[in-house]
């Protein structure tokens, strides 16, 4: 990746980011920073504000307050500069469903004005790696969830962006594709790229992320490497334990499970 495309500054700097939906505060004073060469994991329970944060970083949603910068560019003021540098895999499949992947990638490559030879080589290797050739001429509408996810991932990688913003990227993928995607992400990091990774699958986050930010109700409740988080919340064991402690759900979950065990017991009468 060239110096010019990398721009100045960190891949992402978020400062006191706030987003309201009516009376609901989806993101509340969220600050974090993603460095080049690292995968930053944004973890949180359902409805914590992960997807809203991803949308604000990508320039799809304006923040109510606060500020975000992507390689020194504001997604609201300089959206073109930001979008040139981001490869986004959104949580929902938002592709043009009546197009085939072939037509879709033609469109994406043309709008991004990519070099024909370079892009053809890149997309051919990606299609091969993700075993996607069979689906290349079928309308996206009829693809399975996993194959739509592959199409979404390929569209995020096609222009070799320095920043990948991935919202639940492993959703619906088989074991082989998960492995390939992990390798692709590692290559991306080796090339000096940055990754913002949003997920609630803790095992994947634990094995992939260099640093993790745990958010709950839109607020950052803990941030650091897995070891730092362990130290911070005084929890032992897996990331799951740390996560539950951080969002203060460990006792509540234990009690819920206990009650459930009683309710579901076959001889409860």
């Amino acid at each position: 990746m060239t110096e010019s495309i990398m721009g100045n500054g960190y891949p992402i700097v978020s400062t006191n980011l706030v987003r309201h939906f009516g009376d609901t505060v989806a993101v509340d004073q969220l600050s974090f920073r993603v460095q080049a060469g690292e995968i930053y994991g944004l973890l949180g329970p359902n409805g914590a504000g992960k997807t809203t944060t991803v949308k604000m970083v990508s320039g799809l949603l304006p923040p109510t307050e606060g500020h975000v910068e992507v390689f020194g560019f504001d997604p609201m003021i300089q959206p073109i500069e930001v979008k040139k540098r981001i490869g986004l895999v959104p949580e929902d499949h938002i592709l043009y469903e009546s197009l085939t992947p072939r037509e879709f990638f033609d469109f994406v490559a043309s709008v991004r004005q990519l070099d024909q030879e370079h892009i053809e080589k890149r997309i051919t290797s990606l299609v091969e790696a993700f075993e996607f050739a069979e689906y290349y001429d079928k309308p996206i509408a009829v693809l399975s969830h996993g194959n739509r996810q592959k199409a979404s991932i390929l569209s995020a990688l096609v222009h070799d962006p320095p920043l990948l913003v991935l919202d639940e990227p492993f959703s619906g993928l088989d074991a082989r594709t998960v492995r390939v995607l992990k390798d692709v992400l590692n290559i991306h990091l080796e090339n000096g790229g940055g990754i913002l990774f949003s997920s609630h699958i803790l095992e994947v986050a634990e094995s992939l992320c260099n640093r993790i930010g745990i958010i709950d109700k839109g607020k950052m409740v803990a941030e650091g490497t897995v070891d730092e988080l362990r130290e911070m919340v005084k929890a032992h064991g897996s990331l799951e334990e740390i996560f539950l402690r951080a969002v203060q759900q460990d006792d509540e979950v234990a009690q819920t499970v206990k009650a459930l065990r009683l309710a579901l017991a076959k001889n409860s009468d």
Binding site: F107, D115, Y135
Partner: peptide
């Protein structure tokens, strides 16, 4: 049955790409 054709990308001008889409 699906026929697997070679992977190719056709890069055109932005205007043409938008109209074609």
């Amino acid at each position: 049955p699906s026929v697997v054709r070679p992977v190719k990308v056709k890069v055109s001008s932005t205007s043409i790409a938008l109209l074609r889409k």
